[in-house]
Write a protein that binds this DNA or RNA. Structure first.
Lengths: 178, 178
DNA sequence: CGCTTCTTTCAATCATTTCTGAAAACCCTA
DNA sequence: TAGGGTTTTCAGAAATGATTGAAAGAAGCG
């Protein structure tokens, strides 16, 4: 029999499984499965791919590929690239995991934590200074506000240019025993 | 005109707005809106409520209330309570925000991070030691694995009995300027 | 026990999100 | 600026997820 090269198939299978895994992960996070899969593909492939590559590999429609890619670019985790003498647009995923994570945190803070804090402040102002049943209510709200202010502050530090420090902190926190 | 007491209405409006806000927050997190609203109601009301209280206040069906309550109990953020001489079951939300947060982290780690890590290990083993195109692939996977191992370690510390330490750490991290 | 009250379950329905595909818009190049 | 290749848009279709309500199942009480 002809000597077949098993490597490409194994690699492809590994990629496919990674894509599936990452896709599931994504849907647990409010990111649509397809969008997460597109990101997984770009990340694991390493080199830039064009829309058709993505469509073919993931078996999705052109519209879906276009929308997912655009969203990923907006999230700042994928960037556009061009190849000389080729009119197609190529896309590549940022390869640094911490950068990726920072982008996700930034985006989620903006969409979730900030508006939440704003609402909580408004709600607290409704009953501020009121006594009776409202005092306990106010206490609960204040505790919540305090908590989310901490979340926001930690998040800010994490995504800030010198958020590198927090990366180191996380690494240390994960190792120390006390 | 009769002197009306504006407080109850204001308090109720504040509660309603809190419930709505928390509900939205929940749906941004893969928790169904209703479930988040039920939690919000129990949290902000402070005292234990029975299924009918929840149904009436949120205008949801009995089935929905039952399912949401049960899920909240499973998450460990709500507990069952009984009143003497009353056959109904009452539910109350844990009032400590950090405890709540720890429960959420615990649950999400279990459902999301642990399986993800398991899959990533399996996927890496498929191509382990392979050269060629696979070497870069392996590098990417290793970086990802390293990252999620840190996430897991930090998470573990956070939810551990002496995770109090991490709470303090977060408070400090949020305040320090460097 | 049998009655009553309360809780859970689950198939059917409803609502929301996501995907498709074809048409419109875009943009090089000649 | 006409023509061919490429990308975006969006209305409708499909898939997924949540909710209802009624029936079955417990559990306390007399």
């Amino acid at each position: 029999m002809a000597p077949t090269n098993p490597q490409p198939d194994t690699l492809r299978e590994a990629q496919d499984r990674f894509i599936a895994t990452w896709g599931q992960m994504g849907s647990a996070w409010g990111i649509s499965r397809t969008m997460a899969e597109v990101h997984a593909l770009l990340f694991i492939a390493g080199d830039p791919l064009c829309t058709d590559d993505v469509m073919d590999r993931l078996e999705i429609s052109r519209g879906s590929a276009s929308m997912s890619l655009r969203a990923l670019v907006e999230w700042g985790v994928v960037s556009r690239a061009h190849k000389r003498g080729d009119r197609k647009e190529y896309f590549s995923a940022d390869q640094d995991v911490w950068t990726l994570f920072r982008a996700v945190v930034r985006e989620r803070m903006k969409r979730e934590v900030d508006p939440l804090l704003a609402s909580l402040f408004e709600i607290r102002d409704l009953t501020r200074g009121m006594g009776g049943d409202a005092s306990e209510h106010n206490l609960r709200l204040d505790e919540l506000l305090q908590f989310f202010e901490i979340v926001q502050a930690v998040g800010q530090r994490f995504i800030s240019p010198n958020g590198e420090g927090l990366q180191a902190a996380a690494e240390i926190l994960s190792k120390t025993s006390a």
